[in-house]
Amino acid sequence: MATDLARADVRFVVIGGLAARTHGSSRITEDLDICYDPDRANVRRLANVLAGWHAYLRGVGPGLPFTMDERTLRSTPVMTLVTDHGDLDVMDRVLGVGEFPKVLAASIAASAGGTTFRVLDLPALLAAKKATGRRKDLDQVPELEALLEARRRRRRR
């Protein structure tokens, strides 16, 4: 999904479990969380990709009046979706980090499948996990802190 979004010229930063995995986490994650640039043209591109993937709301029954388009994404910038390619969470800001420019500034480049995209860096990911205060995020903090320390140690060597 991340590579397809990058190929569609959507500006986004990977956050959440996949970002943690990129930094060395041993947890398996099956969904993708992204923070996207709320610029009008970018939102349109993202909405088009999501509509092509038949994105629908996760956790609610079928048949609700939901249309995936630019207007929907602008009025409700945070969404948890199920798509043809898997589960996807999209948001235009990250708690503990800030809006997209700050998220982008706190990201690094990563590549997969021959495509390069941005991934939230480890300190920002840690700040985001702590800021939510949710149990499932806080449970990941010790592992991320260990990764941060291990990485510092490796750099010193």
Binding site: G59, V60, P65, T72, V78, M79, T80, R134, R135
Partner: peptide, 23 residues
Amino acid sequence: VERFLGSCAVRLSLSRTYYAEKR
């Protein structure tokens, strides 16, 4: 109303999937 219910559905989805009680 259709648009309004669409936004409601998004928030309902978030309340079930994204929201979690704080520790």
